[in-house]
């Protein structure tokens, strides 16, 4: 469920950020979505990477298809390359940037989540201490 939520959140945030931020908002969208949905480990890389790469790929395909697949050829001509590169370059870039941003979000969360765990641990210790106190006092 979290995974689907992450995908939806990445797409939603990216589309909102697009209104006022350049393309690199995919990094922000990916990191924030991972932090909110608390996706962990390798999924924190893969889900944003695949989501943004696929979104961009489909988006570009639709735009290209509207022009009868003319635009990808013209863009590729600029770089004196094959038309597929017009897709491959941005998709690969989006994959890497979004993936590492998601991972950064997860690791950033872990950095401070650990603190929360420690605090919880301390609370637990306190709890245990208080339990022992209560036992000593014969309450428990």
């Amino acid at each position: 469920m979290n995974k689907l939520l992450a995908v939806a959140l990445i797409i939603a945030l990216h589309l909102i950020f697009n209104q006022f931020l350049p393309w690199w908002n995919i990094a922000l969208a990916s990191a924030i979505a991972v932090m909110i949905t608390r996706i962990r480990k390798s999924l924190s890389f893969l889900i944003p990477a695949i989501t943004v790469a696929a979104l961009w790929g489909i988006w570009m395909f639709i735009l290209d298809q509207k022009t009868g697949f003319y635009i990808s050829q013209r863009i590729a001509k600029l770089f004196e390359a094959q038309g597929i590169l017009s897709f491959a370059i941005p998709v690969a870039g989006a994959f890497i940037i979004s993936g590492f941003s998601g991972l950064a979000g997860n690791l950033l969360l872990n950095t401070f989540k650990k603190t929360v765990v420690i605090e919880n641990q301390m609370n637990l210790d306190d709890y245990k201490e208080s339990q022992e106190d209560l036992k000593e006092k014969g309450i428990l």
């Binding site: 290209d64 863009i75 989006a94």
Partner: peptide, 16 residues
């Protein structure tokens, strides 16, 4: 390259 080739405000946007 990403500034130029992203589908939101890159060159794809200039199509048509």
């Amino acid at each position: 390259l990403m500034r130029l080739l992203n589908p939101n405000d890159g060159m794809w946007k200039n199509a048509g």
